[in-house]
Simulated scan of single mutants.
Amino acid sequence: MLMRLILTSALALVLMAAPAGTSFASDFYKGFAEDLHSKQEVEEDRKESYKRIFIEMEAKELGIETEGKDPEKLAEEVAETKIKRSAKELNIDTEGKDIKELAKEVHHAEVKKKADELGINQKGKDPQLLAENVYEEMLKQKAEELGVKMVERDIRGLKKAVLETIVKQEAEELGIEVKGKDAQKLQEEIHDKKLFQTAEALDLKTDNKSNRELFDEIITEHAEEAKDKQLFPFEKRNGDFFWNHHVKQRP
């Protein structure tokens, strides 16, 4: 609102001072639009740079050659390698199979394995329904572990409550005040706190640096060290199966 007021006032002053027949308004907006477009391009370039760094690091871990490869193609190669590796661990034959179909087969095998661990009856259930049953059971167990009440909550409401509780607990562990703050605000503060913890662990100077500048420095100049030390944003997270298997709503 304040920015809109400033822009409106500035435009009004330009128009008042402009001689008849001139087009200062269009020039003003043209310059503003060009500046905004330039900033958007810089932001997109930054995101692409981060994406490339992350995917190249993952590729190297998997023993994949990265030299001269397009980031998108490299990402595909990484995904295929991970799927085939998981298939091998689950004793699934990969010979001659389409990678998308193999990915579905791997996911279903992981779900069936988890269903067995949870004691869920699999008889007559298609892969989607079984995945939903597994996720719901894991969600309920997580809610019970966290002390989240399940009374009168549907799965979507329970998921929201669980995630909010996890965020709140993480904030408290980091010494962040949680009173009066919603989950989004707490996530932002958690991000900032972890960012500075990583900077301190890497002995980086933080004076006069914005959070964006600090994050950029960590990713572009110290990613390998941060990953080796399992620092944010490379830290290990417990319960990866739980978080990576959110299922779609059935029609």
Rank of each mutant, 00 (worst) to 15 (best):
M3V: 14
L7S: 06
A12E: 07
A12H: 06
A12T: 08
A17E: 04
P19I: 02
A20E: 08
F24P: 12
S26T: 14
F28G: 05
Y29L: 14
D35P: 06
D35S: 11
L36H: 04
H37P: 08
S38Q: 10
K39P: 02
Q40M: 11
V42R: 07
E43N: 06
E43W: 01
R46T: 03
R46Q: 04
S49T: 14
K51L: 05
I53Y: 00
M57Y: 02
M57H: 09
A59W: 00
E61H: 03
L62I: 02
G63Y: 00
I64P: 06
I64V: 08
E65V: 13
E65Y: 03
E65Q: 08
E67H: 14
D70S: 12
K73L: 10
K73T: 15
A75K: 13
A75I: 06
A75M: 12
V78M: 13
T81E: 12
K82W: 07
K82E: 15
K84S: 12
L90Y: 00
N91S: 13
I92H: 09
D93Y: 09
T94P: 07
G96I: 14
K97W: 07
K97D: 08
E105F: 00
E105Y: 01
V106W: 00
H107F: 04
A109Q: 03
K113G: 14
K114P: 03
D116T: 11
E117R: 07
L118D: 00
G119Y: 03
K125N: 02
Q128I: 09
Q128A: 15
Q128S: 15
L129H: 06
A131G: 11
E132W: 10
E132Y: 12
V134Y: 00
Y135T: 05
E137C: 06
E137A: 09
E144C: 08
L146E: 03
K149H: 11
R153I: 15
D154Q: 07
D154H: 07
L158V: 13
V162C: 06
V162D: 05
L163H: 10
A171R: 08
E172C: 12
L174I: 14
L174A: 09
E177D: 15
V178E: 04
K179Q: 12
K181H: 07
A183T: 15
A183I: 15
L186H: 01
E188H: 13
H191R: 08
L195M: 05
Q197H: 07
A199N: 04
L202C: 08
D207I: 09
S210I: 11
R212N: 08
F215G: 06
F215D: 05
F215H: 09
F215K: 12
I219R: 12
A223T: 04
E225D: 13
E225V: 11
A226C: 11
K227M: 07
D228L: 12
D228Q: 15
Q230I: 15
Q230P: 10
L231E: 03
P233W: 00
P233T: 04
P233H: 01
F234D: 03
E235A: 14
R237Q: 14
N238T: 14
G239A: 02
F242W: 01
N244R: 13
N244G: 14
V247Y: 01
K248W: 01
